Amino acid sequence: MNPQTPTHTVEFTQRFPATRKCAQLARLLAVHALDGWGIAVGTGPSDAAAQIVAELAANAVTHAKVPGREFELRLSRTADTLRIEVSDARAECAPVPRNPGVDAESGRGLFLIEVLASSWGTKERVVGKTVWADIGLAQVLGQN
């Protein structure tokens, strides 16, 4: 077993103001946290996680922004799974993949998440919702 492979769950949680700059910061901090957990920058799982965090955080600040409310990023890792969660204050803005059309400049983010994640979904909160995505790590990191 790799000495950096957790035998229990490790977590990172951070709240951010709902701005585009903070969505970018969320992606950067996620990659840094994953590197500390043994998921090296530039590897497939790190790149996939960065893209998922970028898409979910961008959705939170673009479509689910509530004035005065923050969004939250939570990462948790077990030996074989990385879970990414982004929570916001708008329950009525549940993400639904849609066909944006060939010439559309946006609308493909959830399709990317479907490709990059082993599973994803939403769950309700007292205020708002959480969109989560799991990345399977055992095979991609060569663990048994």
Rank of each mutant, 00 (worst) to 15 (best):
D103V: 14
A54V: 04
S46G: 03
G128V: 09
E92N: 14
K65M: 13
H32R: 13
A94D: 06
G121C: 12
P45L: 04
S76F: 02
A94G: 11
V131P: 11
D88M: 05
A138Y: 05
L75C: 08
A89D: 07
Q143R: 15
G101E: 03
E124C: 12
R90T: 15
P100Y: 01
K123L: 12
R108F: 14
A23N: 07
T62H: 11
T13M: 06
A18D: 09
G68M: 10
K21E: 15
L75N: 00
N2D: 12
A40M: 09
N99K: 15
A91K: 11
A50W: 06
Q139D: 09
A54Y: 07
A30K: 06
A18K: 04
E92K: 15
A133L: 00
A30N: 04
T7G: 11
A49M: 06
E85V: 07
A30W: 07
E72Y: 00
V96N: 08
F111R: 07
D47F: 03
I135V: 13
L28S: 15
R125L: 09
I135F: 04
R77T: 10
R90S: 15
T122I: 05
A48N: 02
D134P: 03
R20G: 12
G136T: 12
R20M: 12
A91W: 06
R27E: 10
L29H: 08
E72W: 01
L28Y: 13
A50D: 02
D47E: 11
L56P: 02
R69Q: 10
L137H: 02
N144W: 14
W37D: 00
P6S: 02
H32N: 11
H32E: 12
Q14H: 07
A117M: 04
L112A: 13
L29G: 06
G107H: 01
L56S: 02
T7N: 07
I39D: 03
G44F: 12
T122L: 07
I135K: 01
N99M: 15
A91N: 05
V53N: 00
A33D: 05
P3C: 07
T78L: 09
V102S: 14
L137P: 07
E114G: 15
E72D: 07
G109E: 01
I39C: 05
G44L: 10
V41H: 10
S76W: 01
G136R: 07
G142K: 04
V53C: 01
S106W: 11
N99V: 14
L25D: 11
E11C: 10
K65E: 15
Q143N: 08
V86G: 01
R27A: 10
K21V: 14
P17M: 06
E114H: 10
F111E: 13
W132N: 04
G109F: 01
A58Y: 13
A133R: 00
T62Q: 09
F111A: 14
A26E: 09
T7M: 13
P97W: 01
A33T: 08
V115G: 11
R69C: 13
S76P: 01
K129F: 12
A89T: 14
V96Q: 09
T130C: 15
H8T: 13
I52T: 02
V140Q: 11
D80V: 14
T78N: 01
V61Q: 08
R108S: 14
L116F: 03
T43I: 01
A54I: 08
T13R: 03
G36P: 03
E92H: 15
R83G: 03
L137N: 02
L141Y: 04
A133Y: 04
G128M: 10
K21F: 11
T81V: 15
L75M: 05
L34W: 01
V61P: 11
N144F: 12
